[in-house]
Each structure stands twice: as C-alpha cells, then as structure tokens.
C-alpha cells in the first residue's frame, strides 16, 4: 500500500544473499518433566536470508514451534529452557541479551504471529488499541501518529474501512480478518523478520489462501523482509517458500530449496511425507499413504536416528548412531546414513 511508510532500513535490501539475516546455531531446548529433563530440540542449525520465505515443516511434536519460540525467546520458562546454541541476528547472539534488550527486539525487529487468531488477540481491548500498542511500545510517537500508523497498517493487510473499525473488538471480526489484524499488529513496526507459527491452520481453506497471498505480498513489498513460516501443510510451503527445512524428533532432517525437496527428497521421512499427500495420481477412495507409527514422545526418543522406529529403509546402524547432516552438491542437507552407503 502506498500509505504504508517506506522501510527506512535499506541494509536489508542490499544484503548479499550470502549474509544471513538470522542464523540459528546448534540450538538446544530442554523441558523439565516429572521424569527428568527432556530435550525437545537439539542441534538445530539454519539460516534465514533477507527477502526469503523459509518453510519449517514437520509433524506435531517435531520441535518446529519450540524452534520458533526460541528465536523470540518466548519458551515458557519453567518448564522450558534454552540450554545451548546461538541465535545470531545482526551479529548479536539474541540468547545473550538481557531481558530488556530482548524486549526491544521483539515486535520491533522480529515479530511473531500465532495459530489461533481468536485467542491470540486480547478479547477486552479494541484492535486499534492492540495495534497502536506495538508502535507506542517501540517508537516515540504521539497517540495521533500511532493511530494513523495503525490505520495504515490495517489497510495494508486488507481490513476494509480500517479507520472505522479501529474501535472494534476481536470478537467482531471473522477468523480471517482476525489473522489480518494479528499480522498488522506484528508488522506495524516494520520488523525485519516475521515468524509465522501455523498462521493458517485455524482458518478455512479459502481464507488460508488469502492469508498466504497477503504474506507473500507483504514479503515482496518488504513489509517483512524475511518470513519464517512454520507449518505442517506441505502444499502451503510448496506454493510460498523458497527454501524448506524438514524437522522430525527435534532435529533438522533435511533442508534445501523447495524445488529440490519436493522433486528429489532424499530423506526417507521427507519421502514419506510427500507420498502421504493426496494428489491427482491417487485413485479415488484409496487409502492415503500414511507413515506407519507415531512420533515418539520426547521422553523416549530412539538413541540413533530419530526416525529409525518408523523408517522403511532402516538399517542396524540407524539404531546405534545418529547420522550427521550430509551436504549434497545442490546445497541440500540430509540427515541419513543411506547417503553414506550410496557414496561408498
């Protein structure tokens, strides 16, 4: 929208694609349970580059939301705790910042939106107040300026008659509109990174498409320079993301460009995920190709490869040692012993 102020931060545009905006290094998160500490996420590495949409996919319990919350340092503590690794943003390790320093990053430089737009907005405050609050927390602006900024942002995310609706409450909006408000609230300070945790899961299919289109549009217009999209919906990833990270059992199992991951998946888990999608090749009323078994609980993860209990190509050594990430020539990273077997 022309009404949205120009992004002042031009460095994001000039960033060479090789210099990542956000870099997560060896992230480890543990949760305290009655049966001792459980590692929800371990050894997670990835980069987010300016201008891209990065998909983080996996089943429930794979650690994708924990990873996203770690970037924001919003892991509920107790019982959770980030026990290792680095989250580098603008050459600063976010995990080393004091609480108030981190507070100035949240909402201002890195913003987050959540799955359930009804409960994620405060029911007793008007949406105008909630969007203005982000601006007024991070910038020295007058009430009037904040009001105008909120109206502009709500217009930009496609709220019709935004000015008139500033005083309305969340329950007066539909699910899709609420998620737009949520996006406006997150982007009103023009953060460099938007972490979107299953932003369309709670919405119906047509609304999902509209919200995804909006996010792509905002990403292209640099309202949000980079988007980390957490989802279990592979179709959404295929349509929107340039790169994909597949997580399972708290580990990155495979990563690469969307094209490589979808056309030539190398990890048995990714292959299984893609096979389980219903497609035009599927015979009507035939069974979907589900991956057998369930995600193991974080309390009894297998010692070797996290996927060994469900892997169709499991070998003896998979139970003993966890495979390292093998780098392929096309930049794809795969955590599987099979690649080594092939090489030898």
């Amino acid at each position: 929208m022309s009404s949205a102020p120009e992004k002042q931060d031009t460095t994001a545009r000039q960033d060479s694609p090789r210099k990542p905006l956000l870099s997560v290094r060896d992230l480890e998160v543990q949760f305290r349970t009655d049966h001792g500490p459980a590692t929800a996420v371990g050894g997670v590495n990835f980069e987010l580059y300016s201008g891209e949409m990065l998909g983080l996919v996996g089943e429930s319990g794979s650690g994708k939301t924990v990873t996203a919350l770690s970037v924001m340092r919003l892991i509920p503590d107790p019982p959770g705790k980030i026990t290792g690794g680095k989250v580098l943003f603008e050459d600063i390790d976010l995990l080393q910042l004091t609480y108030s320093q981190m507070r100035r990053i949240r909402g201002k430089k890195i913003a987050m939106i959540f799955q359930e737009p009804m409960t994620a907005l405060n029911p007793v405050f008007s949406i105008g107040m909630q969007v203005m609050e982000t601006v007024r927390t991070h910038e020295k602006v007058t009430r009037k300026e904040a009001f105008e900024r909120a109206v502009d942002m709500l217009t930009a995310v496609g709220i019709p008659d935004a000015r008139k609706r500033m005083g309305d409450y969340p329950h007066q909006f539909s699910g899709g509109m609420r998620q737009r408000v949520m996006i406006a609230l997150a982007l009103v300070c023009h953060p460099q990174i938007l972490v979107a945790d299953e932003p369309t899961t709670a919405l119906d299919v047509t609304t999902q498409a509209q919200i995804m289109d909006l996010m792509i549009e905002l990403n292209q217009k640099r309202e949000a320079a980079a988007i980390l999209l957490i989802t279990h919906d592979l179709a959404v990833v295929a349509e929107t993301c340039q790169r994909v990270i597949v997580m399972y059992g708290g580990r990155v199992q495979e990563s690469g460009t969307t094209e490589h991951i979808f056309n030539s998946p190398r990890h048995p888990y990714t292959q299984g995920l893609l096979r389980s999608l219903p497609g035009p090749h599927q015979k009507p009323k035939s069974r979907l190709n589900a991956i057998a078994g369930n995600v193991p609980s974080i309390l009894d993860m297998p010692t070797g490869c996290r996927f060994c209990t469900r892997c169709p190509d499991v070998m003896d050594r998979c139970h003993r040692e966890e495979p390292p990430l093998h780098a392929l020539a096309n930049g794809q990273l795969v955590r599987c012993h099979l690649l080594e077997e092939e090489a030898t």
């Binding site: 108030s100 949240r106 987050m112 959540f114 409960t119 994620a120 609050e133 982000t134 927390t137 949520m182």
Partner: peptide, 21 residues
C-alpha cells in the same frame, strides 16, 4: 492464555502484560 504470549511477542514489559492485558 494465547493473548499473553502475543503481548510478550509484541515486546511489552512484563508489568504491562500482567497489569493491563
């Protein structure tokens, strides 16, 4: 509640989250 997490994600101070939201 989820809205509390949203409030923290916006960068609000804990006191504001608790005493206002």
């Amino acid at each position: 509640q989820d809205y509390v997490r949203t409030a923290f994600a916006k960068g609000l101070a804990p006191n504001r989250v608790i005493f206002v939201h």
